[in-house]
Simulated assay, not measured.
Amino acid sequence: MSFGGIVMTEISVSKVEQAGVLPTDDQLGFGKIFTDHMFIMDYEEGKGWHSPRIVPYGEFSFLPATIVFHYGQAIFEGMKAFRTSNDQIAVFRANHYLNRFNRSASHLCIPQINVEEVKAGLFQLLELDKAWVPSKLGTSLYIRPFIVSTDGYIGVKVSSTYKLFIILSPVGAYYSNGFNPVSIKVEDKYVRATKGGLGQAKTPANYAMSLNAQAEAHEQGFDQVLWLDAVHRKYVEEVGTMNIFFKINDEIITPELSGSILGGITRQTVLELAQNWGLKTTERQISIEEVYEAHAKGELQEVFGTGTAAVISPVGELSWKGQKININNNQTGEFAKKLFDFVTGVQYGSVPDEFSWMDKVTV
């Protein structure tokens, strides 16, 4: 069987009796609605990944002793499919996301997937549920692959069995205020990750660790939290759901991937674009003091986050130890807007895909 030019073993398909209907764009929100079907594979030590299948989206059962509930051996990814201007369905940088899925797996002692086989299974799922892909600019079909450990065992060990799922969710804008500058609190009380830990893996533990800080920031009126390094509490790392970029004196600076930061695919995309456009780009340690000093000197031109959900998210305000600064008069910067327009243009088919980012599901 071939999907998107990828050949894989036959998978079983069980369809819903009554197909659902894609809600209107204003009802989508983010991550609240799911399509008719999901993809599942199983892993067993000595047998490998097996039994790929597509089934109706719904509940599944695990034993109370299932190891993932107790010791958190799990990973996930976040990808997007788009309905392009010529009514094709295409996935943004699918191989990059699935390869990162494997990198996360290696950190959690989870068996590697065959990227091409899982991609083919995903494409068949997308083909089946293609009516759920919205078309309005700012909407997309969010793709959530995840793997959980499934041994029924109370004891700290590496599981010998796993389940891989892919579920799909039609979504609107990640932030309710759309493509407008967000306010960010620089976190100096909590830490997210340390070198040698799980910071560079997309695993539930990292997000659980962020909840306290995020809740407190929301109570104080901020949209997001900017994490500092766990050792010195001074070097910028990442935002709760995004990587972070600074434009200082026409130089594009982002924290280097030092072992405690998730290597974002949109982050990589921005670096590639900036370099292609002839801008100076630097991946290095940057302290929050340096950011504030650049602002004081009038050299901090833009700050923006990058991530799959929001794509490009301009930052209009930073608050660190009670000291607030406004960036670019709390307006979206020219470079952030150019990035957003280009990346989303490629995703929706209005800008030529000169970098071969989009994998077509339907033609």
Rank of each mutant, 00 (worst) to 15 (best):
G5R: 01
D25V: 15
L28C: 05
G29W: 00
F39T: 03
E45P: 02
P56L: 01
P64G: 05
P64Q: 08
Y71G: 09
G72W: 06
Q73G: 01
I75E: 02
I89C: 06
V91I: 13
F101P: 00
S104M: 04
H107K: 15
P111M: 02
S140K: 06
Y142G: 03
I143G: 01
Y153D: 10
I154D: 00
P170E: 09
P170N: 07
P170C: 10
N177C: 12
N180V: 09
S183T: 15
K185L: 14
Y190H: 11
A193E: 02
K202V: 00
N206Q: 04
H218Q: 14
E219G: 14
W227D: 05
A230G: 07
E238A: 03
E256G: 12
G264A: 09
G264F: 04
I265L: 03
A274Y: 11
E283C: 08
E283Y: 11
S287M: 07
H295Y: 10
A296K: 12
G298H: 10
V303G: 04
G305A: 09
G305E: 07
G305R: 00
T306H: 10
T306W: 09
I312N: 02
G322T: 09
N330L: 10
Q331M: 11
K338D: 11
K338I: 06
L339Q: 05
D341W: 05
S350T: 15
W357S: 06
K360C: 12
T362Q: 11
